[in-house]
Design a protein around this nucleic acid. Structure first.
Lengths: 241, 241
DNA sequence: TCAATAAGTTGCCTTATGTGCAACAAAACT
DNA sequence: AGTTTTGTTGCACATAAGGCAACTTATTGA
């Protein structure tokens, strides 16, 4: 009636490795399992030999692709279609209430991929076509992934406008501020004359799966309006949990 | 220097379950492993308890979603972005050479999801917007997935036009023909007045990941033209391997 | 740069867990 | 309904797993 202890421990180890964002040290795994270091070594060596874990040159262990999937990063087509359908009414509401256009994007490697948009009816408007890509470090949608998801900023922070953040320290500070604020902003960092706010969309496991945002021209979005849009997007994102 | 035998056997069992198309009987697993039935029972009970395997009412065992992925079907955002970029020049070439518009779609559950398009410059044209969805059974792109991928047709074959195939037997025959022909067609089955041809895009593992097609109005696409478009799309798809 | 410390690996003895035989229960087949 | 096959449970024994200690390697701090 009892389980095989050795197998059970190995699978428990796999679960632990798979749920961590970073590779783990052997001693942390041993203490998590409540076993001696030498036992943890045997377990990990077996998992590695059978292809379920890998050990890096830093001696740390991670779940292998066998566990995490080898199909590339980001949500699947099915998941994207589902989250689009679920959130399109919200995007429409945002555009209706603000008069500005709203977008949804998912993360594809180190870029945002625009997967939905509701256009403003005003003649001067922002347009990121569905299917287009954008950088993480200077778009509000991208910074939402950096602040609320587990995305990593691009190595080189390319300059798009005179106020683009091109220094990793400055970007990290802005991302930290975004977390505290509850939404991310693009203050003419990607395109001059455009301001955007964006917030995270979480799946049922609490993992960020998409970002939604509102964008408009600076002639309509003064500082007061900027904050109103941010508060509205934050409310939409976090009150929906 | 030794591996944990019990853990190793359990992982070997997982590998075996994951690579089989159908759930397995305990005695088959026991004989594959070279162990007694009672041991196999212990192993499987542990795998099931830890969430790595499931046992159906037919008493057979299968790898659980933990192993086969629970992120929904279809390619990931990263893979979609990559195949879009790789094939967009081909889509442009198709539109340039034919004067008609070309589309790319991926599979999301039992629908095609349009992820790229190059518009015709003629006033009368087909338009499936990027981001929109379409059925499998009566679009050329959808039938390409049925013919060359591992998609399953919808249970109910909805009627869109008087010539939509709404009978599974008739659809299966048409899909078989598509395989022999080397490309799939939509002969006014989805929208009256529109004819489409489509072929498969395979990834580096030889798995179908997307479909590309050319669509136009029937006033420009007579039978001869239909075959020319089909042959062109087929050439693009299969000569690229 | 070097010494101290932490982390990971290996050796080996003890014992508890896993293995395999046999019996039993449940399901499938004739 | 009876027979055969399949999956589960009980239990004894031996071997595989666990844990302590020593050793090796890598990292950290002075």
């Amino acid at each position: 009636m009892r389980l095989l202890q050795s197998l059970s421990r190995g699978l428990q180890t796999l679960d632990y490795l798979a749920q961590q964002a970073k590779p783990l040290r052997l001693t942390d795994i041993a203490s998590y399992l409540g076993v001696d270091k030498s036992n943890a070594t045997h377990i990990l060596r077996t998992l590695v030999a059978c292809g379920y874990a890998t050990q890096g040159t830093d001696r740390r262990y991670a779940a292998s692709e066998k566990m995490t999937g080898s199909q590339g990063s980001g949500p699947t087509a099915e998941a994207i279609v589902a989250v689009r359908q679920q959130w399109q009414p919200i995007l429409k509401q945002l555009t209706r209430e603000t008069g500005e256009c709203s977008h949804m994007a998912v993360l594809a490697s180190s870029q945002v991929w625009y997967v939905d948009k509701i256009d403003s009816e005003l003649p001067l408007k922002v347009d990121h076509p569905i299917g287009s890509l954008g950088p993480l470090h200077c778009t509000a949608l991208g910074k939402a992934f950096l602040a609320f998801g587990d995305a990593q900023a691009e190595q080189e922070l390319k300059q798009f406008t005179p106020v683009t953040l091109t220094d990793h320290t400055a970007l990290a500070a802005e991302i930290s501020k975004s977390r505290d604020r509850g939404y991310a902003i693009d203050d003419e960092e990607f395109t001059s004359g455009i301001r955007c706010v964006a917030g995270p969309v979480f799946d049922e496991h609490g993992v960020m799966i998409a970002a939604i945002g509102v964008s408009g021209p600076t002639v309509r979005i003064d500082d007061k309006r900027f904050e109103e849009l941010g508060a509205l997007v934050q409310k939409m994102c976090f009150m929906r949990e």
